[in-house]
């Protein structure tokens, strides 16, 4: 089925500011597919971002959009969602924005189980600021602030979010847009905090320093390492090191959502003490 993307695109803002071949476009396309599939009306939807290349995405999207401060998008989204829990609120973020400067909001929003979807475009690098290493830069990879190779182990964002209490956690990658769109759609449909890590390419800032300056080289580097969770579990430890699992990694539909808990409290207090 063909998807009509344009109702969700601010056409007048094109061309976009991303480098040719950037992975963020695949993420945006997947989000729009999911919006259309779930029939989310643009005026009933908000997409919130922080700072970085990925955080410029909302500007191209014809929904309610807010481009906030570095790392803080989830906190703004929390205020919006609590005040209008009947609406759809999505956060789009990069790996540095979400898991370094914004890490605290990420884990606590997950713990709270507030009905937000957080999508992290993980391209393993700070792109906009000039290729500095991020919390998800692989050990040994080169970056502008790791000219001799990165000495810090990387976050596994999926494990981090499962540990923090997220009730839906998935990982996809930009080499498989169809699969990614299905994960994002499931995350949007999930009632509660949902998280999608998108393993993505920044060939300009990461690839160029790590022998993958061509976008397809970096996308292939990602695709070649992506395996299903089941396949990954059956791999030797040595093979696991060279791959990463994709799929819906965790789902819990039993736990009550935060805003629902709050609205129940309001209803209960009203019953006890009518205004």
């Amino acid at each position: 089925m063909s998807v009509d993307y344009m109702p969700y695109v601010r056409e007048e803002k094109l061309p976009h500011m991303w480098c040719p071949g950037c992975g963020i476009g695949v993420v945006m396309k997947s989000m729009i597919k999911a919006f259309e599939d779930l029939e989310w009306e643009p005026e009933d939807t908000a997409v919130i971002s922080g700072i970085g290349c990925t955080s410029r995405l909302p500007g191209y999207m014809k929904v309610n959009t807010l481009h906030t401060t570095h790392g803080r998008a989830i906190s703004f989204a929390t205020g919006i969602k609590m005040h209008r829990s009947d609406k759809h609120v999505v956060v789009i973020s990069g790996d540095g924005d979400a898991s370094a400067i914004g890490g605290n909001h990420l884990i606590h929003a997950a713990r709270r189980n507030i009905d937000l979807t957080v999508i992290v475009n993980n391209n393993h690098i700070y792109g906009m600021t000039g290729g500095q290493y991020s919390p998800t830069t692989p050990l040994g990879a080169k970056a502008s602030t790791a000219p001799y190779g990165n000495l810090e182990p990387a976050f596994d964002l999926v494990k981090l979010l499962i540990g923090a209490g997220a009730t839906f956690v998935a990982r996809g990658h930009v080499g498989n847009g169809r699969q990614l769109a299905s994960f994002i759609r499931k995350a949007f449909a999930h009632k509660g905090f949902s998280f999608v890590e998108v393993v993505s390419n920044c060939h300009t800032q990461f690839g160029r320093r790590n022998k993958m300056a061509d976008p397809m080289n970096m996308v292939n580097w990602i695709s070649d390492r992506a395996v299903s969770q089941k396949k990954w579990e059956n791999m030797s430890a040595a093979d696991q090191e060279k791959h990463f699992p994709v799929g819906v990694m965790f789902e819990d539909t039993e736990q009550a959502e935060y805003c629902e808990r709050y609205e129940k409290l309001i209803a209960k207090l009203r019953e006890e003490q009518p205004a």
Partner: peptide, 14 residues
Amino acid sequence: LGAMGAVIGASLAG
């Protein structure tokens, strides 16, 4: 920081 962010977010939602 999050408290200030949430307050501004809620304000923009009315």
